[in-house]
Design a binder for these strands. Sequence first.
DNA 1: GATTATTTGTTCGTATGTATA
DNA 2: CTATACATACGAACAAATAAT
Lengths: 247, 247
Amino acid sequence: MDAHEQAPGLVRGEGLTAWRQIADALTADVVAGRYAPGQQLPTEAALAARFAVNRHTVRRALAALAEGGLVRASQGRGTFVEEAPLAYPIGPRTRFSEIVTGAGREAWGDLVASVTVTAGPDQAEALSLPPGAPVLELLTIHRADGAPISTAQTWLPLPRFSGFADAYAARGSITRALAACGVHDYTRLSTRIRARPADAREAERLDIAPGRVVMVVSSVNVDPAGARIQANRTLFAADRVELVIGG
Amino acid sequence: MDAHEQAPGLVRGEGLTAWRQIADALTADVVAGRYAPGQQLPTEAALAARFAVNRHTVRRALAALAEGGLVRASQGRGTFVEEAPLAYPIGPRTRFSEIVTGAGREAWGDLVASVTVTAGPDQAEALSLPPGAPVLELLTIHRADGAPISTAQTWLPLPRFSGFADAYAARGSITRALAACGVHDYTRLSTRIRARPADAREAERLDIAPGRVVMVVSSVNVDPAGARIQANRTLFAADRVELVIGG
DNA sequence: GATTATTTGTTCGTATGTATA
DNA sequence: CTATACATACGAACAAATAAT
């Protein structure tokens, strides 16, 4: 067979290589939703047959899609459309519940545990408290339509927020629980972002496999008077969430 | 031996457990610099001897330090003081060279490769170009005191920035290379942050082990007139860099 | 490449003090 | 006061990862 024979449906021209056209066609399929997020693409062999090209040519096209993060190939399993991550805006007025409901999903935060502890060095500095001051520590899991998006440790100074845990458990939202404690507005003072593999406990809370990557967002919130009311360490499953700044 | 015999240097009292006092002592050692960042702590056995407690008790204390991110234990190697990550502020006027020189280190960017390609869907959208428009793609590695901090793919529209690759190679800085192309100021329009394990090529460029976590920062820069001049996808080694917003 | 020593990680068991019902 | 649960601490042995020989 002539290696330069025209494949059906593919045109010839400058820069219009076969793999590029196949990549464009598959990209169009994905963005049009003909292959749903998480769904497996046809096998390379099947795609090669569909476009009447060698499997190598399909592989070159799939490599281009994978490079752009549109699909992910998994040896022995297949090639899958990447799930669109939840865009999570981070700014001075970040509120989980608004972000999730704004995405058309239902937001709820589960209170896993709450304890009174003495502030560690990090929390003391974040909250401008003397080392060893008592703080309320909450462990929460935040869900969108029931699926865990993030899990957070939250520290609040005592005794000001001694009623916070009950308020949070009843209302499922930091914003609403703070309002119940008399804080009707708050803004984010600072945000620090790191990333690392999840340990077993964190993975269980986020319903991911241990070792999958989490983004660790440490933040401090202040009330309108500028008082530091809350320090957070929030973990996001990196394959489900994309942090967005500005734009 | 009486399990309740008083260990030397440890006192007794409410809430003053042995492991807590050991954790406090080791924390003080670390923050005072008696164990330098990156340095190996004494072995668990040695610490147990120093504090005259069982190794379990030392392990409980070290677990508390590791929880706070102050140290990191590595099986078979030892326990090490965590290096303070480079704080990398992200904002409308983010400039690598200023961040690094502001931290008292020397900044330089190496141009690894530059090619002319047709814009993929992501780049076309980021730069407001029609799909298939020609763009200049650069692959760069950014170093602080010679150590790689990040590696980036950068896309610029052609033909406006046809001289950019040479300018960058000569100047080692995006800011200075843009100035050479007549862009004397620019601001960041949007930033998106994800995280995942590094593949082999990325790991080599960042001088980390494959599979270690990288933060992927996708950004778009605009000139003072609001024109989109540059799309970036920058990879940071997650254990060397902390992204900072606000504060 | 195989061996050995070192070091952290895990899992038993035992005992005691403390808080709670 | 007792019973129970929990946290603390010690002892021993082995597994697993690493580094050096």
